[in-house]
Simulated scan of single mutants.
Amino acid sequence: MKVIKSKNFKSDRAWGAQDIANMNGITTRLHWTDKPYEWHINDDEEVFVVLDGVVEMLFKDRGVEKSVVLETGDIFYASIGTEHVAHPRGETRILVVESEGSV
Rank of each mutant, 00 (worst) to 15 (best):
I26F: 02
E45S: 05
E45I: 02
V3Y: 11
I4D: 05
F9H: 12
D52R: 12
D61W: 07
I41F: 02
K2S: 02
I41A: 01
R62C: 08
N24Y: 12
F59Y: 15
T28W: 00
R29Y: 00
H40P: 12
M57C: 02
M23D: 15
V55S: 04
T27L: 01
F59T: 08
K5L: 10
G25E: 00
L51P: 05
F9S: 06
N24G: 15
E56F: 10
G16A: 04
Q18A: 01
I4S: 02
A14C: 10
L51E: 11
D52M: 09
G25P: 07
K2V: 02
K2L: 03
V50M: 10
N22Y: 02
T28N: 10
R13E: 15
A17H: 08
A14V: 10
D52W: 04
M57F: 12
R62L: 06
F48Q: 04
R29S: 00
V47K: 08
W32E: 01
L51G: 11
P36K: 04
N42Q: 11
N42L: 05
P36I: 07
V3Q: 12
I4V: 13
K60A: 05
F9A: 04
E56G: 08
M1R: 02
H40L: 08
P36E: 13
A21T: 13
A21R: 04
L30S: 03
S11K: 03
I4W: 03
M57I: 14
L30I: 12
N8S: 13
V3E: 14
K35A: 14
F59I: 06
K10W: 09
G53C: 11
D19T: 03
M23E: 14
L58N: 13
E38H: 05
G63H: 12
I41V: 15
E45C: 01
T28I: 08
A14E: 14
T33P: 10
H31Y: 09
T27A: 03
H40V: 06
G53F: 08
G53L: 10
R13W: 06
E56W: 04
N24R: 13
K10Q: 13
F48N: 09
V3L: 15
A21W: 04
L51T: 13
D34A: 05
I20V: 15
S11N: 07
Q18R: 13
D43I: 05
F9E: 01
H40A: 08
A14P: 15
A14N: 15
F48T: 03
V54M: 11
T27E: 14
N42K: 04
M1C: 04
D12I: 10
R62N: 14
V49C: 03
N42E: 09
D52Q: 13
A17P: 02
D19S: 07
M57P: 09
